[in-house]
Simulated scan of single mutants.
Amino acid sequence: MEIGTDENPQHWHEEIGDDVGNRLNWLRAGVLGANDGIVSVAGIVMGVAGATSERSPVFVAGVAGLVAGALSMAAGEYVSVNAQRDSEQAMLALEAEELEKMPETELRELARMYEKKGLSRDTARKVAAELTEHDALAAHAEIEFGIDPEKLTNAWHAAFASMISFTIGALLPLLAITLTPLSVRVWATVATVAVALAVAGFIQARLGLSPIGRAVGRNVAGGLLAMAVTYAVGSVVGTHV
């Protein structure tokens, strides 16, 4: 991201738009879903591959992990986001009731909050009065709770984003270990997962404005560690069962 000067103004956030909060929610759901899909299904198929050289058990376990994981991610996101939305709506309802029953008290409270942010008393009162006249509930919700009443998180959007991203991520290790020859399927899966996690880490860093190397490194390292452990467990269990 490039930042301009006073002579050539350029704001870093102009490239990502004004709805940063909603963007971050989508980023969280999408990246977590893809990473979980890649790592969890890779761990499952590698664990089964360590226990048997047959294709059928590996494929069945991978498909079962994909379906169960995708539905679990969708349900988890839907429940958690709905819980957050219900809480936000409850707070907004209470705040609306306070504004109706004691508007002058709420106006003074809003002015005090702006004073605490550094405005002079007269300026804070003027700002509070103008914001109250425009949209009292939005003004109080923003400064007290950090909530925009018009942009509450959509639970269905988060659920579908998680489910789709998990499925896409999970398909990569499943196809890699199923379609490659038995002699190279483990290494082909490791390579596929490493590349996929690197890409996911890169996208996460770019969209989240965080360091690319750190995001890529932790994604790849975590995924490879998980595969190594599950493959070792599968190899040990497979020889004793």
Rank of each mutant, 00 (worst) to 15 (best):
residue 91 M to H: 15
residue 93 A to S: 14
residue 94 L to C: 08
residue 95 E to G: 10
residue 96 A to V: 06
residue 97 E to A: 13
residue 99 L to A: 08
residue 99 L to V: 09
residue 100 E to M: 09
residue 102 M to L: 12
residue 102 M to V: 13
residue 103 P to C: 04
residue 104 E to H: 12
residue 105 T to E: 12
residue 105 T to W: 10
residue 105 T to R: 13
residue 106 E to F: 09
residue 106 E to R: 13
residue 107 L to V: 03
residue 108 R to L: 15
residue 108 R to Q: 15
residue 109 E to L: 15
residue 109 E to W: 02
residue 110 L to N: 12
residue 113 M to S: 11
residue 113 M to Q: 12
residue 115 E to N: 10
residue 116 K to E: 15
residue 117 K to Y: 14
residue 117 K to F: 14
residue 118 G to Y: 09
residue 118 G to R: 07
residue 119 L to C: 03
residue 120 S to W: 05
residue 121 R to K: 11
residue 121 R to F: 09
residue 122 D to C: 07
residue 125 R to W: 08
residue 126 K to W: 10
residue 129 A to G: 14
residue 130 E to R: 14
residue 130 E to H: 08
residue 131 L to G: 10
residue 131 L to I: 12
residue 132 T to Y: 14
residue 134 H to E: 13
residue 140 H to F: 14
residue 141 A to W: 07
residue 143 I to C: 08
residue 146 G to K: 09
residue 148 D to N: 14
residue 149 P to Q: 06
residue 150 E to W: 12
residue 151 K to D: 14
residue 154 N to Y: 08
residue 155 A to H: 12
residue 155 A to W: 07
residue 157 H to K: 10
residue 157 H to C: 08
residue 157 H to M: 14
residue 157 H to A: 13
residue 158 A to M: 08
residue 159 A to H: 05
residue 160 F to V: 13
residue 162 S to K: 00
residue 165 S to Y: 02
residue 167 T to W: 02
residue 167 T to G: 13
residue 168 I to S: 04
residue 169 G to D: 08
residue 171 L to Q: 03
residue 171 L to H: 07
residue 171 L to D: 06
residue 173 P to F: 08
residue 174 L to R: 01
residue 174 L to A: 03
residue 175 L to Y: 06
residue 175 L to A: 11
residue 176 A to T: 01
residue 178 T to M: 04
residue 180 T to I: 02
residue 181 P to C: 04
residue 184 V to G: 06
residue 184 V to Q: 12
residue 185 R to G: 04
residue 187 W to G: 11
residue 187 W to R: 09
residue 188 A to V: 10
residue 190 V to H: 03
residue 190 V to S: 06
residue 191 A to C: 15
residue 192 T to D: 06
residue 193 V to E: 05
residue 193 V to A: 07
residue 194 A to W: 02
residue 197 L to S: 02
residue 198 A to K: 01
residue 199 V to I: 15
residue 199 V to T: 07
residue 199 V to M: 11
residue 201 G to W: 00
residue 201 G to K: 00
residue 203 I to H: 00
residue 204 Q to I: 00
residue 205 A to Y: 00
residue 208 G to C: 01
residue 210 S to V: 00
residue 211 P to F: 05
residue 211 P to K: 01
residue 211 P to A: 05
residue 215 A to Y: 01
residue 215 A to R: 00
residue 215 A to P: 05
residue 216 V to Y: 01
residue 216 V to A: 04
residue 218 R to M: 06
residue 219 N to L: 01
residue 219 N to C: 02
residue 220 V to P: 01
residue 221 A to Y: 05
residue 222 G to K: 03
residue 223 G to V: 01
residue 224 L to A: 09
residue 225 L to W: 05
residue 226 A to D: 08
residue 226 A to K: 03
residue 227 M to D: 06
